[in-house]
Design a protein around this nucleic acid. Sequence first.
RNA 1: CCAGUCGGCCGGGCGGCCGCGAGGCUUUUUCAAGGCUUCGAGGAAAGUCCGGGCUCCAUGGAGAGACGGUGGCGGCUAACGGCCGCCGGGGGCGACCCCAGGGAAAGUGCCACAGAAAAGAUACCGCCGGGCAUCGCCCGGUAAGGGUGAAAAGGUGCGGCAAGAGCGCACCGCGUCGCUGGCAACAGUGAUGGCAGGGCAAACCCCGCCGGGAGCAAGACCGAAUAGGGAUGGCGCGCGCCGCAAGGCGCAGGAGGCUCCGCUCCAGCCGUCCGGGUUGGUUGCAGGAGGCUCGGCGCAAGCCGGGUCCCAGAUGAAUGGCCGCCACGUUCCGCCGCGAGGCGGGGCCAUACAGAACCCGGCUUACAGGCCGACUGGAUAU
RNA 2: GGGGGCGUAGCCAAGUGGUUAAGGCCGGCUGCUCAUAACAGUCUUAUCGGGGGUUCGAGUCCCUCCGCCCCUA
Length: 147
Amino acid sequence: MTDEKFQGGMAEKPSPPFQLVTLKKRADFKAAANGPRFSTPGFTMLRGPEAGAVPPATGLRFGFTVTKKVGNAVERNRIRRRLREAVRAAADRFPRHPMDLVILARRTAIERDFPDLVADIARAVDALARRGAHKSRSSAAGEVSEN
RNA sequence: CCAGUCGGCCGGGCGGCCGCGAGGCUUUUUCAAGGCUUCGAGGAAAGUCCGGGCUCCAUGGAGAGACGGUGGCGGCUAACGGCCGCCGGGGGCGACCCCAGGGAAAGUGCCACAGAAAAGAUACCGCCGGGCAUCGCCCGGUAAGGGUGAAAAGGUGCGGCAAGAGCGCACCGCGUCGCUGGCAACAGUGAUGGCAGGGCAAACCCCGCCGGGAGCAAGACCGAAUAGGGAUGGCGCGCGCCGCAAGGCGCAGGAGGCUCCGCUCCAGCCGUCCGGGUUGGUUGCAGGAGGCUCGGCGCAAGCCGGGUCCCAGAUGAAUGGCCGCCACGUUCCGCCGCGAGGCGGGGCCAUACAGAACCCGGCUUACAGGCCGACUGGAUAU
RNA sequence: GGGGGCGUAGCCAAGUGGUUAAGGCCGGCUGCUCAUAACAGUCUUAUCGGGGGUUCGAGUCCCUCCGCCCCUA
């Protein structure tokens, strides 16, 4: 059902109607803190558990963490907006695997070329989806069976 | 044209594709989603250094004390440590700039080193007089000169004197008492004193004035979940002494958002009623000491009146991402020109400082580049 | 958002307004030792976080800015 909706969107417009759902609760971030991680020049991506009760079409939820060490308020805002836009741009390359992902921004995210940033996001999501799936098969079978 | 002073303002523009938040309208049978449309960061939104609004708590002594802040005078303001005007002092050729700028005869304290002496004065070298008399020593007078210091007990000149000294006089400074001008700070001026009263109060302090406390995570409401909390009414009141008893006297614990005094409340039992912390949501929450503009008053800060506009409301936190063109800037290369400069092409992710979090008024700090006005000192030309 | 505190040498730190700013660790050199450590002696290292003001004089007092830490949910 979700797949049909997704494909229908594709047919109408050149880019899919990807709706970005962000993590809002501190507990969600803490759940991802010790999960598998994938680092790129602009950020580190952390993988949390399966998405919550009402997952979006793609089943992915993203959380953005930009600490005060990175820069002042203007720079932090800019980094968060670029990363969010990069996630949107990379959405059509995402695997359909429900999970929470936390993006821990680095200062270099403000300088990095936007196409590279988009490629990094796609690379990281793909890698973490496969690694998470591999891990869940061996350790936590309950999470997979729910899917 | 060069150098400078002061005040005010701007701080990219247009367009394309894809998005975000909020409001309104609308479509589908509902849940929900879609469509259209409007609006969507700053001059400092920053630092949080002051002042208010607003909310809750306290509110008896319009108490006293402590603590903190503030400090020329007058005005503006809701208020201020802000702003305007003026006065006084200092700096600059000038436009102009800077100043915590009350009190040092209420008291206490400090003034290192140097110096004779650092504050009820004193005398190292000197100067003068007298005595003894071989260099010189002793006694007295003096504070003009030398020297020390950031600062040396009014300054300069003349007289005077043994030498000197406000000892006398003139001018300046200072104090006191008048007069004139000014709302006042203060200024001017006259008389008089005869030099007393060094500096530091961003040392303690004194004087005047101001300040109750906490903060929108204040506060109010709703829902879920849990059972240790709360409100109210009645009865009752800890310890000691006196008394047969009723009761009387004395002492004490905790709370009331700095302390004290005063005052009030509380402790245990029973009845009735309501549901705290925590988490989520709604509200507070944007029509305001509001913006723009016109007229009047005022030197100005500002005030009064008319017209007109509605102009951000997020909450892991919207206002963006990627491009194109233009303006401006900067830099490099080539060509032209004696030169100022001009033309063409390229680079700078081609824009500084920086992101509302309840709201206003200020202050302070950061800031690429640019614009406007007034004025000052030079230079040149007429 | 609100409240509190700190900043002195590479590190830890003392410092009533008054000489050239204590002390310890570290470091350099010398001695001792075959050598090292320990020990003894000796020496160096300070824009007192930056700027401005008050004062004759500021690490100290006042103002302002910067950086860091803690508390409060």
